[in-house]
């Protein structure tokens, strides 16, 4: 409980500090800007939260993002298909890749780190093969509107992010599936002995993570109006950072979507604030690293 409030408290302090230092910070357009910046990683972080609560990790999300982005883009040239087709194709690709991750991890009992590390390379390679290493450009306006458009006054990426948050909260905290996710992370054997079909839950969790990575790929490619096989490199680490800052432990069994959102927001606000203050992006990297470690230290302290 305390650790939960600890991280919320830290976030509030950060916001107050930013607001005092930079008057532009609290401007609505800046806030929307921050949300838009964290939407891509935030969507993936929701999936990663499930993965990390079962005690796993998914290093392949950045590559799945790229693969889904190029597949979507290849179906999104003007006058070819309706917008829903590239989106569905991307989601199917993400779901499939995540499903393979899950099958290997659950059935063959290999370490998630290894399996998804392998998949990270494979999916990236597939994106390169599929595009011959070149970005896919010339996308339809309809498709580009996903990343650039507005709906009820909010950018569509932000809306998608909010929707995924709500869905994540619902599935993790209000369904049997979510309860099993916690049970498996806490003690997989005890969950199995209690009649939980643990393999099925694990497979679904990795499939979900893959699918959300694909959705992030749609959002990102439509925002930059192209699908590039080199997209999303290193995103997996930012995503894991957001989840960890949010209080989910690497060993599993503990975590929340709320915490993850705060984690993503802390990274977003910090980057934005440091931008406003004209701090170089090199320094931002250092600050981000320090914050990750500090957050986990705070978590440890308050959990004891």
């Amino acid at each position: 409980m305390l650790s939960k409030y600890g991280i919320y408290f830290a976030f509030c302090l950060l916001v107050i500090a930013m607001a005092i230092i930079s008057p532009a910070f609290l401007h609505p357009s800046n806030i929307v800007n921050i949300l838009r910046q964290i939407a891509v990683n935030g969507i993936m972080a929701v999936g990663m939260t499930f993965v990390m609560i079962i005690g796993g990790i998914d290093l392949s999300v950045g590559s799945i993002l790229a693969l889904a982005a190029v597949v979507a883009a290849s179906f999104a040239h003007p006058g070819e298909h309706r917008v829903i087709i590239p989106v569905l194709m991307a989601l199917a690709v993400g779901l499939g890749v995540g499903f393979i991750n899950g099958i290997i991890i659950a059935r063959k009992r290999l370490a998630p780190f290894i399996v998804t590390l392998g998949m990270m390379t494979v999916a990236r390679g597939m994106a390169l093969v599929y595009t011959n290493g070149r970005p896919v450009i010339n996308l339809s306006d309809g498709y580009n509107r996903i990343g650039g458009g507005y709906f009820i006054g909010l950018p569509i990426p932000v809306l998608a992010f909010l929707l995924i948050i709500l869905g994540g909260i619902f599935f993790l905290h209000f369904t049997r599936f979510g309860r099993y996710v916690f049970a498996i992370g806490g003690n997989e054997l005890a969950a199995k002995v209690s009649g939980v079909k643990t393999q099925g839950v694990v497979i679904r969790v990795y499939a979900l993570s893959g699918m959300l990575a694909a959705l992030a790929g749609v959002v990102l490619s439509s925002r930059v109006m192209s699908g590039s096989p080199s997209m999303g490199q290193g995103y997996e680490l930012d995503v894991i950072a957001a989840v960890v800052i949010g209080g989910t432990t690497l060993s599993g069994g503990v975590g929340s979507i709320g915490g993850t959102i705060i984690g993503a927001l802390i990274i977003g606000v910090m980057n934005n604030g440091l931008d406003l203050l004209n701090v170089s992006s090199y320094w931002q990297e250092i600050v981000k690293g320090v914050i990750i470690v500090l957050a986990v230290m705070l978590d440890r302290k308050t959990n004891r």
Partner: peptide
């Protein structure tokens, strides 16, 4: 093999019979 030590009395107690407290088999 019996308990999720990171879980609460509630989540441990209901784990094996969780289906009984769900609408549509899923929603708690």
């Amino acid at each position: 093999a019996g308990l999720n030590l990171k879980g609460s009395v509630k989540t441990n107690t209901s784990l094996a019979s969780l289906k009984d407290y769900c609408s549509f088999g899923q929603i708690l």
